[in-house]
Simulated scan of single mutants.
Amino acid sequence: MRLLNKIAVITGAGQGIGAAIAKAFIKEGAAVCIAELNAKTAEDVAWKLRADGGRAIAVQCDVADRASIDNAISRTISEFGRVDILVNNAGVNVFRDPLEMSDEDWRRCLAIDLEGAMHGSRAVLPGMIERGVGAIINIASTHSFSIIPGCFPYPVAKHALLGLTRSLGIEYASKGVRVNAIAPGYVDTPIAEAYFQTFPDPAAERKKAEDIHPPRRMCRPEEVAMTAVFLASDEAPFINASVITIDGGRSVIYHD
């Protein structure tokens, strides 16, 4: 019970990595708020967690809207009394040609992948500072430090998210608040599967993604989740303004 009696808000937790983090947090003794844009998937996840004996609520939340994330935090405090942990997991893939990309695509990517984390952090920081303790975990990406052609402007937002992680971590370290990031590579989620299905041979495309990783497989959502448990727990009191990469070693390969 590494998170016993801790209260967590997890954005984008209606599926994939976010849902896995919520499940792992419940298993480790936390209560969670599933803050998710899709109200149905949010409630589905929360219902399953409650059915297994966990404490969970679902709140519809658009992280690009500061008032919306403020509402999710307020609902959590009303239900559970405070917020000890924030996981800024909500994100969106926006892959466009830089010169053909619309202004709306640019704004959407930055609003969700970067500003959403800032909105959430601003909502929880006052309470964390007042209590002298708190953990914020930003789900970044290997796009945060590497570039894959054809993925603009997603890496721009994810690079900036690491800057936000480091800046906030240093800014509030003396107040007892730790801010860290996790940078996964390919993760076997419904979003990844939907991407593979856009190809004529989805199985071949999946195998291609698996084979570029040294372990010859993709990361599992629960592997990201358990790293989040560690960073959120009292076992990581001196880890701050840092990023943990979860990609099986792929990012250290110079070329294939």
Rank of each mutant, 00 (worst) to 15 (best):
R166D: 00
P155T: 08
A225D: 05
D234H: 06
A157G: 07
A30H: 01
N180Y: 10
V9M: 05
A31C: 01
S242L: 10
V177G: 05
A241M: 05
A64F: 05
N88Q: 12
P155C: 07
G132I: 05
R250P: 01
G14V: 01
Y172V: 15
L164I: 15
F152A: 15
Y172M: 11
W106Q: 02
E222D: 15
A31M: 05
I191Y: 03
L162R: 06
A228K: 01
D44L: 11
V87N: 08
Y254E: 15
E115W: 06
A209V: 00
M101V: 09
F230W: 10
A90K: 04
I129S: 05
T76L: 09
R216T: 12
I26K: 00
F95H: 14
R96N: 10
V94S: 05
M218C: 11
A20V: 02
A194M: 11
V83E: 01
A225Q: 00
K40Y: 07
I85F: 08
E79S: 15
L3N: 01
Y186S: 12
F25Q: 04
P184R: 07
G53K: 15
A192Y: 11
R250F: 14
T11K: 07
R178S: 02
H255I: 14
A42T: 10
S167N: 15
G169F: 13
A90Q: 01
D201H: 08
P153C: 13
D103E: 06
P237V: 09
V94K: 07
E43N: 12
Y254H: 15
M118D: 08
I136N: 07
A42Y: 05
P237R: 13
W47A: 15
P200Y: 03
K48R: 14
M128G: 02
Q197V: 08
S233C: 12
A236E: 08
I147K: 03
A19L: 03
V177R: 04
F25I: 02
C61N: 01
Y172H: 14
I73Y: 07
I244Q: 00
H119C: 04
R178T: 02
F196P: 07
A20G: 09
A194I: 04
K175A: 14
V45T: 14
I73P: 03
L4P: 05
R96M: 15
R55V: 00
L125K: 07
A236K: 04
W47R: 15
A123K: 09
C151T: 13
E43W: 12
I17V: 10
C219I: 11
I246R: 11
A228F: 04
H255K: 14
G29F: 00
A19D: 04
E43S: 14
A64S: 13
